[in-house]
Amino acid sequence: MRIIDINTAYGPYTGASATTGSGELEQRLKAAGVEKAVSLCSYGIYYSYRDGNARTLKTCQESSLLMPAATVDPRGFFGQKELLPKLKEAGFRLLRFFPDLQEWDTEHLVFEDLLRLNADVGLPVMISVTAPGQVTRVFRIAGDLGYPVILQGIGYLQLAETIAAARRSECFMAETSGLSMPATLELLSGSIGADRILFGSGACERSVEIARDFVLSAHIPDGDKEKIFYENSARVLGV
């Protein structure tokens, strides 16, 4: 089965070693049979999004497997309208946000500004949502902006909120790396349809094989698994 992994990262704090790099990530992805992966350097999360985006782009330009995800930290964004168009032009396939790791709230006005600015750019957006209420807050801003919004890291406690948001807006989708409870993928797929679920592993920090096998072992049709593993991401990313 062909696989696109929409949620990977490399660099410090993405693995057990301080030097976990893109080479190690690629090895793990290849070993798990992943054909393409969207990735970013952890410098963009923890240090500076400008520095991190530059590193990510350089790494992905030298890789046949990795596609670049950009990130912007709202705490360091001062309204430069040209930023998002430039990121798209540079070849970034996805725009990621990390409110939990960076400790800002999805009520952040600048986050809202960024999501609204992206309406003219149309980059798919992926947002880490691990706390109650985050999905709702994201939905209230981006529910009608017209581009794909992927909710990343949802666990069983965010399932109801995710399903409610996805039922209200066709743009809302779910990523799989936070799912681990039995029957949750089946519930999600039955509620919002397999067309709106995207495979993500969370590698290097998390095991690609375990994330893959969780989807493989779900009680859903093989055609739905193909959508989750490959077709949905290919459509969203323009692969």
Binding site: S48, R50, D51, D73, R75, G76, Q102
Partner: peptide
């Protein structure tokens, strides 16, 4: 004291 990019702002 430190040198390097100011975190977040860059």
């Amino acid at each position: 004291c430190r040198i390097g990019a100011i975190p977040v702002l860059g």
